[in-house]
Amino acid sequence: APMERFFRSFKTEWMPKECYNNYEEAERDTLKYILQHYNTKRGHSYNNYLSPVVMEAAA
């Protein structure tokens, strides 16, 4: 279930509607989503809507 939720969020919040031109572009954008958005800015319900980075810093 967590991976399904992740990919649903990725597809609806980040992935371009016109898709990617090549594998490298998709890989670069996916890493950007994970490292610069999902882990640092996007709130998660199981963390009281804090990002994972903020939650770890508070622990």
Results as ranks from 00 to 15, higher is better:
R8N: 11
N22E: 08
F10V: 00
H37C: 07
A1V: 05
A59E: 12
F7H: 09
R5L: 10
P52N: 05
L50I: 05
Y38Q: 03
F10A: 01
W14N: 01
M3D: 04
A26R: 02
Y49M: 15
F7N: 05
E4T: 02
Y38F: 14
P52S: 05
E4W: 02
H37W: 14
V53I: 12
E25L: 06
T40E: 11
E24L: 13
T30E: 01
Y46S: 14
A59Q: 11
T12K: 09
A58E: 13
Y20V: 04
A26W: 00
A59G: 09
M3H: 05
S45V: 07
L35W: 08
M55W: 10
S9N: 06
Y46M: 08
A1D: 07
Y20R: 03
L50T: 04
Q36A: 10
P2K: 05
K11C: 13
R28F: 13
H44V: 04
Y49D: 14
E24S: 13
E4L: 03
A26Q: 08
K11F: 12
Y38L: 01
H44L: 06
N21S: 15
H37L: 14
E24A: 13
D29W: 02
T40W: 05
P16C: 05
Y20K: 02
F10D: 01
L50R: 10
I34W: 02
C19E: 15
I34R: 00
W14C: 04
S9C: 06
R28E: 15
A57K: 10
L35Q: 13
E27W: 11
G43P: 07
Y20M: 05
T12N: 11
A58N: 13
E13H: 11
E24R: 13
P52A: 05
Y23I: 15
F10C: 00
T12S: 15
K17M: 09
E56R: 13
V53C: 06
L35I: 07
E13W: 07
P16L: 03
W14I: 02
Y33E: 01
F10W: 10
N39T: 03
P2T: 00
T40Y: 04
H37Y: 15
Q36I: 02
R42Y: 06
H37R: 11
G43R: 07
R5K: 15
A58M: 14
R28W: 11
T40L: 10
E56T: 08
A58D: 11
M55A: 12
K32S: 14
F10E: 01
V53Y: 05
N21T: 15
H37D: 12
A26H: 00
H37M: 11
K11E: 15
N21R: 14
K11D: 15
K17C: 06
P2V: 02
R5P: 00
T12M: 10
M55H: 10
T30K: 00
W14R: 03
N22Y: 06
V54D: 12
N48M: 11
M15D: 01
A58C: 08
R28Y: 13
N21H: 12
E13V: 05
P2A: 07
A58I: 12
N47P: 02
Y20Q: 03
T12P: 02
R5Y: 08
R8P: 01
V54I: 14
E18M: 08
F6P: 00
K41V: 12
N48V: 07
C19N: 15
K17H: 08
I34A: 04
P2E: 06
M3I: 08
I34K: 02
